[in-house]
């Protein structure tokens, strides 16, 4: 139970940073997403994100920063394992589940549903 509360707090706080960026700087949502993923890669390569994951669990892995961190960790792991080639294979290998799921479910959903206006 405490894990869920921690995830809630950490995830909420990370989203607050995003909201501050939106409200104060008028950066578009697409750019915010890019900024978060890239910062995840930067934090990940220096191992700075791991403590957050250990404390907040999904509160750290579910936000896009966690996606960036996954890319960075993957690349480090593969470089350790296979050397130079790992630079090209590591990142996407580690993030494969998320990316493939997004493409697959995206395609299926696009086929079975259609956009609606909200009023």
């Amino acid at each position: 139970m405490i894990d869920i509360l921690k995830a809630f707090l950490l995830g909420g706080c990370i989203c607050i940073i995003g909201q501050l960026l939106i409200d104060l700087t008028k950066i578009t949502p697409a750019r915010i997403m890019v900024i978060f993923v890239v910062s995840g890669v930067v934090l990940g390569i220096f191992g700075l994100y791991q403590p957050l994951i250990e404390w907040g669990g999904a509160g750290a892995t579910v936000p896009l920063v966690g996606f960036g961190n996954t890319l960075a960790k993957g690349v480090i792991k593969e470089v350790d394992k296979v050397g130079l080639l790992g630079i090209f294979t590591g990142g996407v290998k580690a993030a494969a589940a998320g990316i493939t799921a997004a493409v697959t479910f995206g395609y299926i959903m696009a086929i079975i549903s259609k956009p609606k206006i909200k009023s």
Binding site: G11, G12, I14, C15, I16, I17, G18, Q19, L21, I22, P29, A30, I32, M33, F36, V62, P63, L64, V65, G66, F67, G98, A101, A102, V103, F105, G106, Y107, M109, A110, I111, S113, K114, P115
Partner: peptide, 25 residues
Amino acid sequence: FGGAGASIPITGFSNSIVSPAMEFK
């Protein structure tokens, strides 16, 4: 409702893929 609270989690990444796919079908 949630702004960044909805777009920053990976569910928001998924939304950003599904919504144009639906829209441009």
